[in-house]
Structures are given as structure tokens and as C-alpha cells.
Amino acid sequence: MQRICIGLILFLTIASGRVRVVTATTDLKDITEAIGGDRVTVTSIARGNQDPHYVEVLPSYMLKVKKADLYLMVGMELDLWSDRIIDGSRNRKLRIVDCSKDIERLEVPTRKVDASLGDIHRFGNPHYWLDPVNGKVLARTITEALVEADPEGRAVFEANLAEFERQVDERLAHWLEEYASLKDRKIMFYHNSWPYFTRRFGLETVQFLEPKPGVPPSPAHLNRLLDIVQKDTILVVGMESYFSDQTPRFLADRTGAKVIKLAQSVEALPGVDSYLDVFDYNLHALAEALGD
């Protein structure tokens, strides 16, 4: 008990003076830690292997936000649950930042959006962090927010931002060269999480296992997909880590396509511990599955 008390006091002492940040997802957490360094303590609400569309609003999350200085949300209606957590936190001083504010958005609906389209997002596809260039945009948004919360840390945050951008540029150049053979390769995904990723690395998406976003695959849709996989010689079905592989396996068993789990976020799969790991892991997994 004495050890716990000492640990708690030590933790509170160390934590005091730091900017306390709560992020909606692990990707935002990792980038915030990269920018904030020792001047921040960061907690994520969603786990990396969790579907970020559906996070149960737990009172314990409200408690985390109650003590926070800054809340970083994904935005574009991906994390609608953030609103209820923020309200329930009773934190009047909380700064809330929508990290999608400077993102060049893809798949913004051009017609009236309703439930007949499935779980579609009115402001465009919200999985924008899956393009490393957008990771740099996120890092700049997070830097602005941290400077506002802790002006004395500006120099540290800006230096860390420059280092983060350098790392992304370096890795991106490497990925584009190393995985150039992925360009124009056809792939089927479970859910439409990947338009930013495929645009950056030149992959071609051919259909989704979900007939419409958020709608589980039906037998009729699977029959159509069987034809498409065979006709278009799809070699790989990529899926987010939080889906069951039962349906993709059904498809793979009948067509010979390979099923691979991809990391949609930091900590989605073992070994994916940082934002840059997400791309290292996914590109390697795709190249291996496609035989490149």
C-alpha cells in the first residue's frame, strides 16, 4: 500500500506541469507523443485493435478527460462518441481539436446522404491517417494545439515536428521505391478504410466485402465477389484487424486468394508500435502476399 502511495505521489509530481492530452485513437496518441516528448502525457480512448466507429462511451473514459488539458479527435464523424465522453467529463477548461481540419478529404458525398448508403460519412472518408503525408498534416495540427496549451514548449514542439516530418519524408521515399511494384495491383478490402493508403501507394481497390459501409456481407454479395475475384484475378483480400476472418476465409478457400490482416492503427497488430510501423507493416504484408 505504501509503495502504491509513493508511486502515485511520484506519478503526480512527474505528471504535473506536463500537458495532459487525451486522444480518440492510438495514431493520434503516437504522433502527439512524438511531437510533445517529455512535455506531454497522452492517453488514447480507443484501443488500436478496436473499430474506431464503435467505441462504447464508458464513464471511466470521462474520468480520463476530466483531468485533461487537450482532447484530440479524429473528426469527420468517425468518433461521434467523443462528444459524449467530453460532455460527461465536466471539464470546462478542455481544449478540443478536430484533427481533420486541414486534411484534403476524399470521397466527400456529392448527393444527399442517408442510411440507404450504409454507414457513410457526410464529410468524406475519415480514415485519412492512413496516408503518411496526412500524418505530417496531423503533426502540424497537433503542434499548433500543443503550442497553444504550453507556449513555453514551442521550441521543443517545433523541433520535434521537424524531426517527425523528416522521418516521414525519409520513410515515404523508401516505401515508394521499395514497394513500387504494388502500383496498379488489385486488392479487395473488407471495409472502405483504405482510400488514402491506396492513393498514396498506387494500389487499385476492387470491391469490398461489405456490400455497403457497416453492412455485414450477405450470401448474395459473396457470390458476386466470388465472380469478381476470379474474373479480375484478385490475389489478396485485405482486412482490418478487428474483423472476423471467417468471411474472407470463405472467399479465399474458393478462389485461392490470400487473406491478410492489416494494421488500420497503431497497436492494431503485434509489432505495430508506432505510426511509421503502420506503413512498414502493411506494405511489407501486401508485398509478401502479392509475391513481390
Binding site: V55, V57, L80, W81, R84, A115
Partner: peptide, 10 residues
């Protein structure tokens, strides 16, 4: 149900 899709509160 018809209307905005909101997560259930715990």
C-alpha cells in the same frame, strides 16, 4: 429506428 446513428451510452 430512423435518424442519426449515435453510439449507445453505457
Amino acid at each position: 429506428s430512423l435518424g442519426p446513428h449515435k453510439p449507445h451510452r453505457f
